[in-house]
Design a protein around this nucleic acid. Structure first.
Length: 430
RNA sequence: GGGAAGAUAGCCAAGUGGCCAACGGCAACAGACUGUAAAUCUGUCCUCUUCGGAGUUCGUAGGUUCGAAUCCUACUCUUCCCA
């Protein structure tokens, strides 16, 4: 039962590097493996979803996952993939971020049941106790500077204009120490991470081998950094980062993010981020090829991931809201719905609330656009209208000097403001 | 310690006394075509605006000039060469 983890990752295209022998070791018996999460923000965003899914698959394959939040290493800053020295966070912010990450990870892994229940640890608990002298005597002795210099993350920074501080240079030792600590105390034999972590991971496996000799047979595995087919940065919407916290990115916005995925990237993301099996994904691809305009892959992607991250109820609401807002005929879409149903559907959308009196006296359309956040100034709002990019209740609005009044209300309740094709804000009245 | 080159908008980068809110590219936003996709073509793209304009930018601070991103001085930072 332990054997299919590597095979699974492999067909999903999730293996970039791995240390030989891992597959055999995993098939023998339950293994303990870990991934570290960086507390640079107080919520995880979609970029962290891939490591989470890898841990989830690891646990589903019968192994025991450990998630580390980097309360200690976060104080230092990982130079991997960074062109400039990291701005250090103060310990209060860091502490808050660590708590935020913990709460989210509890949602995705099973921390309750079975021999392979997940664990969550904060590396400040052991790194914080390490004294300077102990560190240099017991840990630093095992690291050769010439080897450390060859790591990509260090090499790139040394060659760059900004260089690298001693602090960040030592980062790999701390991460290696984490791995060794987990090996020693939790019998953890595998560290996983994105491709840019390979140097840090091998620093750990080398360290364990030196320190524990032939007993120290441990493994590393990396998965690709997420990219999109068009080369643009993954994980940003027009409003910024896409977060996993529903208070920062609503389930509707989250659902929409995946729904807008392009055709070339969708098959990859289905493999990366969903628990659908190979057969199902290939079937979806065939259906998609038959009728691409139905966007079958995008719907499957958005449905699966939104359910996983926010749950079935949130998905249903996001779908209902999407269906209502993107319907061609609004009157029809809302006809026959009760007040409660309408309120529920609108509660999922981005919205602003204004007073009834403002509509009675007439609300300038430019003000409305700025209030809604669709554009940040009246000048921008005017340009939007002039370029034919603004609609009210799905009808193009061409007069920048006109006003919104009660006659624009749908169901006597709300007005739909839309910039471009997909950015919709609902204006509600009190 | 000595010398040389450089710093321009979110990023890259041209401009070396007036024609400069500053060529071009990327990213971003909007339109057309589509499928809330990609590609392509078009428009916008320092800030605000009552769309008439107004205000603030070319490392920082001064200066020369009717006029400075452009010339001068000092300072800060970066890169390279020599010791």
């Amino acid at each position: 039962m332990f054997s299919d983890f590597i095979e699974e990752l492999s067909w999903r295209g999730l293996i970039q590097h791995k240390i030989d022998g891992l597959e055999e070791r995993l098939s023998e018996k339950m293994a303990v493996g870990y991934i570290g999460f960086d507390p640079t923000a107080n919520s995880l965003h979609v970029g962290s979803l891939l490591p989470i899914m890898v841990l989830v698959r690891f646990q589903r394959a019968g192994h025991k996952p450990i998630a580390i939040v980097g309360g200690g290493t976060g104080m230092i800053g990982d130079p991997s993939g960074k062109t400039a020295e990291r701005q250090l966070l103060d310990s209060q912010t860091l502490q808050k971020n660590v708590e935020g990450l913990k709460n989210q990870l509890y949602k995705y892994l099973d921390f309750e049941n079975g021999e392979n229940k997940a664990e969550l640890l904060n590396n400040i608990d052991w790194l914080g106790k390490l004294s300077m002298i102990d560190f240099l005597r017991d840990v630093g002795k095992y690291f050769r500077v010439n080897v450390m210099l060859t790591k990509d993350s260090v090499k790139k920074r040394i060659e760059s204009e900004v260089g690298i501080s001693f602090t960040e240079f030592t980062y790999q030792i701390l991460q290696a120490y984490d791995f060794e600590y987990l090996y020693r105390t939790k019998n953890c034999i595998l560290q996983m991470g994105a491709t840019d972590q390979w140097g840090n991971i091998t620093a750990g496996t080398d360290y364990i081998r030196y320190k524990h000799g032939s007993e120290g047979r441990v493994f590393g595995l990396t998965f690709p950094l997420v990219t999109k087919a068009d080369g643009t940065k993954f994980g940003k919407s027009e409003k910024g980062n896409v977060w996993l916290d529903p208070n920062l990115t609503t389930p509707y916005q989250f659902y929409q993010f995946w729904l807008r995925c392009d055709d070339n990237t969708a098959p990859k993301f289905l493999r990366y981020y969903t628990l659908l099996d190979k057969q199902k994904i290939e079937q979806l691809e065939q259906e998609h090829a038959q009728a691409p305009h139905l966007r079958i892959l995008q719907h499957a992607l958005a449905d699966e991931i939104t359910t996983f991250v926010h749950g079935k109820d949130a998905l249903n609401l996001a779908r209902k809201t999407t269906k209502a807002l993107f319907s061609k005929n609004l009157e029809e879409a809302f006809a026959g719905l009760s007040d409660e149903e309408i309120n529920l559907i609108l509660s999922g959308a981005d919205s602003i609330t204004i007073s009834r009196e403002q509509l009675q006296t007439g609300l300038s359309i430019l003000d409305a656009i700025v209030l809604s956040g669709l554009k940040q100034s009246k000048g921008d709002a005017r340009k939007l209208i002039q370029s034919n990019g603004f609609s009210v209740n799905k009808l193009k609005w061409t007069q920048p000097n006109d006003v919104l009044t009660e006659k624009h209300l749908l169901q006597n309740k709300f007005i739909m403001l839309q910039s471009g094709k997909s950015d919709i804000v609902v204006l509600k009245t009190e």
